[in-house]
Design a binder for these strands. Structure first.
Lengths: 111, 111
DNA sequence: TGAACGTGCAACTCTTGGGTTGCGCTAGGG
DNA sequence: CCCTAGCGCAACCCAAGAGTTGCACGTTCA
């Protein structure tokens, strides 16, 4: 998977509000199943599963099987990648964007 | 347009590689027409026009009519908005990961 | 062992998105 | 004044995305 594919997957994962909502839940829960996620959101479990697959293939979610459950956890790494792309691109968009870099400096996450 | 719509539009604008390529050309040219963009890329002018409309509605492009041409320019503002979303979200994720990390390291958590 | 629960797989619908072609209109430049 | 360059609109194609329902399979545990 080249870098363009990866950026494609990341931004497209972030472009859906249901998926961003799932990301938020993942972030607050530290480990959660698709069924748990589905209760409390207005879509079916299967829809959630598909979103989780999209998030996984963008690198945002990792899975761990525990008995008959599959628990999903957040991986923040792709967010850093997105931040780096924006920062790099913004830098190239010349000094109109100079201030962007400081905004993204040591957040999100430490590597 | 609420903030979610805006984030939707921005990330979905960034999620297509042709559109990212157009953004790059916009950044380097400081004012360019759809026809100019189409020469040198492997899609039709109409496809470029559609991409420019998507970029416009995300706030990335502004148009200015000059005679019979329509010249497009880059507006970097949405990139800042994306950066801010990522930064905010990343901060919230880091909070949780930070708590988790200090728990795992058996250190007294701050906060 | 058997019922119940959580998943996985598949088929299906509807909408959106990226792309194309064709054509008509208008503004400029010889 | 006319021809051409550049644009806008509309119709269309095809693939992917978001979502649904139905059912089969494996795990748990009473």
């Amino acid at each position: 998977m080249n870098s363009d594919d990866s950026i494609d997957a990341i931004f497209s994962a972030l472009s859906d509000r249901t998926r961003r909502q799932v990301l938020g839940r993942l972030a607050r829960a530290d480990s959660v199943t698709a069924t748990e996620l589905a209760t409390g959101m207005d879509v079916s479990r299967q829809a959630i599963v598909k979103h989780l697959q999209a998030l996984s293939s963008a690198g945002f979610a990792t899975t761990e099987r525990s008995g008959r459950e599959v628990r999903y956890s957040l991986d923040p790494a792709p967010l850093r990648e997105a931040a780096r792309w924006i920062s790099d691109e913004g830098a190239r968009w010349d000094d109109r964007l100079g201030r962007l870099r400081s905004l993204l400096q040591d957040r999100p996450g430490r590597t």
